[in-house]
Amino acid sequence: SISSRVKSKRIQLGLNQAELAQKVGTTQQSIEQLENGKTKRPRFLPELASALGVSVDWLLN
């Protein structure tokens, strides 16, 4: 799922939720909701993929 991929990649990069949120241009709460499965397809998906160094396709599939 996107939530597990985001969380595992974030941890692999040594980032906390607030640091990832800053790179993406969103809030820590938005990252938390995404990782908890409350958000399925965030509006900041391209920025998120870029910050994590992955493709949008990788996040979604």
Rank of each mutant, 00 (worst) to 15 (best):
I2T: 07
L48W: 02
W58E: 07
W58D: 06
E32T: 08
Q29K: 14
R5N: 07
R43I: 13
A51W: 04
S50L: 14
L20F: 03
I31T: 01
V54D: 11
K38V: 14
Q29P: 07
K9Y: 03
K7V: 10
G25V: 03
V54W: 01
R10E: 02
V6W: 00
V56D: 06
P46A: 14
T39P: 09
A51G: 04
A21V: 00
I2N: 03
S30Q: 15
K9G: 05
K7P: 01
K23C: 11
Q33K: 13
S30A: 15
A51S: 07
S8I: 10
W58S: 04
A18R: 15
A21R: 01
G25F: 03
I2H: 04
T27G: 06
Q17R: 11
S4F: 07
L48E: 00
T39I: 15
Q28A: 13
I11R: 08
K40V: 14
E35G: 01
G25A: 05
G53F: 04
L45C: 04
N61S: 14
W58C: 05
G14M: 05
V6N: 00
S1I: 11
I31A: 02
I11V: 11
K7A: 11
E47P: 04
G37L: 04
D57F: 08
P42H: 09
L15P: 02
S4H: 13
L45Y: 05
K38T: 15
K40G: 12
S8C: 15
A21T: 00
R5Y: 02
T39V: 13
G37Q: 06
S50M: 12
S50H: 12
R43H: 13
Q33G: 09
E32I: 12
A51L: 09
R43D: 13
S3K: 07
T39D: 13
L20H: 01
N16I: 06
P42A: 09
K38P: 08
Q28D: 06
L45K: 00
R41V: 14
S55K: 08
K38Q: 13
E47V: 08
R10T: 15
T26Y: 03
A49L: 04
E19T: 05
P46S: 14
S1A: 10
K40L: 15
I31W: 00
P46Y: 11
N16Y: 03
G53A: 06
Q33T: 07
S3G: 15
G25N: 09
P46D: 13
V56Y: 08
Q22H: 11
L52C: 03
N36H: 09
T27H: 07
V56S: 07
I11L: 14
I2G: 03
Q17G: 06
P42S: 07
L15I: 11
K23L: 15
G37I: 03
V54Y: 01
S8K: 10
V24W: 02
S4V: 11
A18K: 12
R43G: 13
R5I: 09
A21S: 05
Q28T: 14
I2D: 03
Q28C: 10
Q22W: 08
D57A: 09
K23G: 05
E47R: 11
N36R: 11
F44Y: 13
F44H: 06
A51F: 07
N36Y: 06
Q17L: 12
D57N: 09
E32K: 12
R43F: 11
G53N: 09
N36L: 12
V24P: 00
L15M: 14
V54R: 01
Q29W: 10
F44M: 07
R5T: 05
S50G: 11
K9A: 13
F44G: 04
I11A: 09
S8T: 12
V56G: 05
Q17F: 07
Q29D: 15
S50I: 15
T39Q: 11
A49R: 00
N16T: 15
L20E: 03
E19A: 08
S1Q: 10
S55L: 07
L20M: 04
F44C: 08
K38F: 15
L59N: 00
V6G: 02
N16L: 08
L45S: 03
S1K: 09
L52Q: 01
G37T: 05
P46C: 14
S8Y: 09
P46N: 14
I31F: 02
K7W: 01
N16R: 05
I2F: 10
L59M: 04
A18T: 12
D57I: 06
S50R: 12
A49G: 05
I31D: 01
G14N: 08
